[in-house]
Amino acid sequence: MHKFLKISILLLLLPLTGFTAIHKFYVSTTDINYDRESRAIQIVSRVFADDLEKTIDNRYEIKSGLISEHELPDADTYLENYYASKLLITVNGRKVTLRYLGKEYKDDMVVSYLEAVDVPLPTSLKTENKLLYETYPEQQNIVHIRSGDTRKSFLLQKDEDQCVLKFDK
């Protein structure tokens, strides 16, 4: 009876472990903060390194070598161009120019830093986040927007890749 119980449990758990190995969850997180004192939008984007590397490599037909000792010397240029085309911010109806500041690696994530300077106090902030959709159509991008005491989070997907937050003055 004891052996039968072990085999039964194993047979119940086996399909569950097999399913998780087949399916991967694709998600990124982007924090957007408007700093009133410096009149700047500060952005921190966290993306799984292997997903970002595959997307960059396919898009630019390169071997970027992200998170390896073989990383291309100009990998940041590719990341800067990618973010410029896939992460768009509009404040009060006007598109702002994001400046790529750099990246760091934390665990299995690429953490990228961007900013926009000389930005007026927002009454509305629109975000268009299309990161990784060309490689992973099931990608989900979580966006957290904050200015002062106002904060809101959004879950963006390929067909719904924009969000707008309106602020009280």
Rank of each mutant, 00 (worst) to 15 (best):
K166R: 12
Y113T: 00
L121H: 10
N58G: 02
I43L: 14
K106N: 09
V91F: 11
I67M: 08
T150L: 04
D57E: 08
R46A: 14
Q139S: 02
L13A: 12
I43N: 02
R59M: 10
P120N: 11
I22Y: 06
V27L: 15
G93Q: 07
Q139I: 05
D35N: 12
S147T: 06
E134T: 09
E160R: 01
N58T: 06
E115Q: 11
Y133L: 04
Y113L: 00
L66S: 04
R59L: 12
V164K: 03
L131M: 13
Q139P: 00
S64Y: 03
T30L: 05
I56R: 01
L98R: 01
P137D: 01
F48A: 00
K169S: 11
A21T: 07
S112Y: 08
K63M: 06
Q42K: 14
V143E: 09
D107Q: 11
T55V: 09
A116M: 05
L16E: 03
T90I: 10
E104H: 06
H144R: 07
S85C: 04
Y105F: 15
Y83E: 07
D118Q: 04
P73W: 04
L87T: 06
A21E: 10
I43C: 06
G18E: 10
C163H: 04
Q42C: 10
S28D: 12
D74C: 07
L13Y: 07
L66R: 03
K126I: 06
E69Q: 13
P73C: 10
I56M: 07
K126V: 08
S147R: 02
E138P: 02
